[in-house]
Design a protein around this nucleic acid. Structure first.
Lengths: 314, 314
DNA sequence: GCAAACGGTGCTCATATGCGCAACCGGTGC
DNA sequence: GCACCGGTTGCGCATATGAGCACCGTTTGC
């Protein structure tokens, strides 16, 4: 039956899809009933003899998305079909995030965003007019020490401009050396009002960083290489809006966390819409921590990451 | 329209093929009429956004086959989708030929065959019981001088045995040195009766050789390397049942042809069913000569050869 | 040796889909 | 301003397709 039936299925599939004959015609041709033809066709699709794929840079993987949503109780998921390690993985995911943001309903009045390479990409790919009158607010401390000075601000401003809206920047370092300084800066009227705005955002959009020495936080001088090594030793898998988390999504170093300025993890968890954008193998671990611990309601990612999330949590 | 419409088509295609929703549902979902959904789907298939492929070792390329049939007035064509240069190209084509032969209707009472590596492969791949009571007859002179003695006979015998039929061998050299000898041997009762049987075969199955020094005819000592070089100089592209033809399918050397024993080219051209099996880049030229000059009614080949035939004759 | 269970088959019927046509829309030339 | 035209849209209707069901030959278990 195996080879024989398969062979028949192949012939049927060829006639149906390549020659687009009707099932009835095929039945006549091969002297089988049209119902059998239908069944062979179904079988062929199940067995993968017939492969239907949608080839388009903006195509998605709906089946995987559905699984992600179910498994992690997300309100939405976007999975871009890109071979892992592909060159344009980053940009394709960013594009998808931009598309998602554009289609997001209701349109957020205020959008809280983090910063980083990924977010900057998203900002670039948004079309002018993607929305109207959105206020964009930074949800974690800036990059005053960053080599690529202005990137963080640029991201927020670009997103806001393209929505004909306003950007509100968070004028504060990401992490302060002393707790008192952090308290003081938070008390400052300017900073406080931004944080308040951020806390009340109708949606958040953020990415995550890997816990290693290449982190922007190290680059920017907020942490040293040994700081990070220590964090990793304590179980850190990556950072979300500047806060290091372990595999369970918990804060790794409470003291450090206390000195970090911006929206807290609990605030993210309570958010109605928190869109998390990730791509690439390096971030599998952080991504898992984030989705399993309820830090996001929406994930936008590549196929490899999605598959990793689904497999490893089985 | 381009990007915008395409994007819509992608979404529709995703919902239809990945999620298998009905066109109507999709219409409701995206607030477009179901007719538009249908049209977008059609468009997506045309534009190649939706790619449906049949993945199976025995799958065929029906669109190409249709073109071949039309272009060269063939009664049938079988094209196996194998990447050119692939390892199992030979065996896949042979398999296809075996399948074709098995499915051939009406089942030939007598089948005329040539011999060679390809035909031997086909014989091997035929299943026992592929037909019943078929008489297999050789249509060109044997390989008495061949190193692989018995191959030619084996092919015929195998094919016949697997059809529970009889093999009739042609007990004669392929090419004789003197015309008189050829005449004499043809006049011999045994040989004459075989040739008669061959002439009346209800179908022919043959392959072709390349016109170069690696030919079996050289190997077997019927021709010398310099003979072949001379033939090539005169325009030979390859041989069919031992007879060298040029790009137009004409005999290259009438004198030589006269001394060749077996079914003639005109007899092949007049045949109701002449199945030609070829594969590989080396044989593109012969293959073209054969199909363009009406030497076969059916071609069984690989995708590369098929494409070459179609392109070069444009 | 027999009945139950099962996988596969053909069929009915509701539903989904494609074809052809008429209406419509935006641009073009007179 | 008006008739024209190519291309798109909506629709009626014939047709193709899939779900559910009854049936039948074969295997399985007692």
């Amino acid at each position: 039956m195996n080879t024989e039936g398969e062979l028949l299925a192949v012939r049927v599939a060829e006639l149906y899809y390549d020659e687009n004959k009707t099932q009835d015609e095929i039945g006549g041709l091969l002297t089988i009933t049209r119902w059998k033809v239908g069944r062979l066709l179904a079988q062929a699709r199940e067995q993968g003899i017939v492969r239907i794929e949608i080839v388009h840079p903006r195509a998605r993987r709906l089946a995987v998305e559905r699984e992600l949503k179910e498994r992690f109780q997300l309100s939405d998921a976007v999975v871009v079909p890109v071979p892992t390690g592909s060159e344009d993985l980053r940009s394709r995911v960013a594009q998808a995030a931009a598309d998602y943001l554009t289609g997001l309903r209701p349109v957020p009045r205020t959008l809280g965003i983090s910063w980083g390479r990924t977010l900057s990409d998203v900002a670039e790919r948004l079309e002018t007019g993607w929305a109207t009158g959105v206020t964009v607010v930074q949800i974690n401390g800036g990059v005053s020490l960053n080599k690529r000075r202005g990137t963080a601000a640029n991201t927020a401003v670009t997103i806001a401009q393209k929505a004909h809206g306003q950007a509100t920047l968070l004028p504060s370092p990401a992490i302060l050396e002393r707790l008192e300084t952090k308290r003081a800066i938070e008390a400052d009227r300017t900073v406080a009002s931004v944080l308040e705005l951020a806390a009340g955002a109708s949606a958040y959009l953020y990415s995550a960083g890997v816990a290693d020495e290449s982190s922007v936080l190290v680059d920017s001088g907020y942490l040293t290489s040994s700081d990070v090594r220590e964090l990793v030793r304590k179980g850190a898998v990556g950072d979300v809006v500047g806060r290091y988390i372990d595999a369970n999504g918990n804060t790794v170093d409470p003291g450090l966390d206390e000195r970090t300025v911006g929206v807290g993890l609990d605030q993210l968890r309570a958010a109605k819409t928190a869109i998390f954008v990730v791509d690439g193998e390096a971030k599998y671990a952080v991504a898992r921590a984030i989705v399993t611990s309820g830090l996001c309601t929406v994930i936008v990612t590549d196929e490899g990451t999605a598959r990793a999330l689904l497999e490893e949590s089985t």
